[in-house]
């Protein structure tokens, strides 16, 4: 009797340990996976690379696509990598054309649970339209990387 009671206590202890501690310590939950992408022909990648490193330092898995990605390529990478988030950067002014295209292609491929965010030189007037098109957040010059990190953490739609 006593042994069985003790066992139960021990069992609960391990359960709790598993629940609260181990998961945190061993990081059993998969880290957030982000595809950082440069759509279009724009070659300015300082921002994209700084954000990629900041996300990685914040514990996320980051796949950086490199330059000159078509929306199709970005969506393909996001699906192949089972990404939770696509983070795009454009400084050439082609954002109104390319950001929504990525959102729509993700939808077409049944991956509309992927969070899409964007950054770069984006005039404020363009932001409401982009949000409406399904880009969850737009981060303009001067945004601390911590803001982007928190936004992604708080808004991913885990499958």
């Amino acid at each position: 009797m006593v042994a069985s009671y003790e066992l139960r206590i021990l069992g609960r202890f391990f359960e709790e340990l598993l629940e609260h501690k181990l998961k945190g310590v061993l990081n059993l939950e998969r880290p957030i996976r982000v595809v950082v992408a440069k759509p279009g022909l724009d070659g300015h990648d300082r921002g994209a690379k700084v954000v990629a490193r900041a996300l990685r330092d914040a514990g996320m898995e980051v796949i950086y696509t490199g330059l000159r990605q078509t929306p199709e390529q970005i969506v393909e990478t996001a699906i192949q990598e089972d990404a939770d988030c696509v983070a795009m950067s454009i400084l050439s002014g082609a954002h109104n054309h390319l950001f929504p295209k990525v959102v729509n292609l993700l939808k077409e491929r049944g991956a509309d649970d992927v969070l899409v965010v964007g950054g770069g030189v984006i005039p404020e007037d363009d932001i409401p339209g982009l949000i409406e098109a399904g880009i969850a957040g737009i981060f303009t010059p001067g945004t601390p990387t911590s803001v982007t990190i928190d936004f992604i953490k708080n808004n991913i739609k885990r499958k």
């Binding site: 279009g40 022909l41 724009d42 050439s92 082609a94 054309h97």
Partner: peptide, 10 residues
């Protein structure tokens, strides 16, 4: 096709 959205921008 890759020029889409970029023509005359920068």
């Amino acid at each position: 096709v890759l020029s889409e959205g970029e023509v005359g921008k920068v």
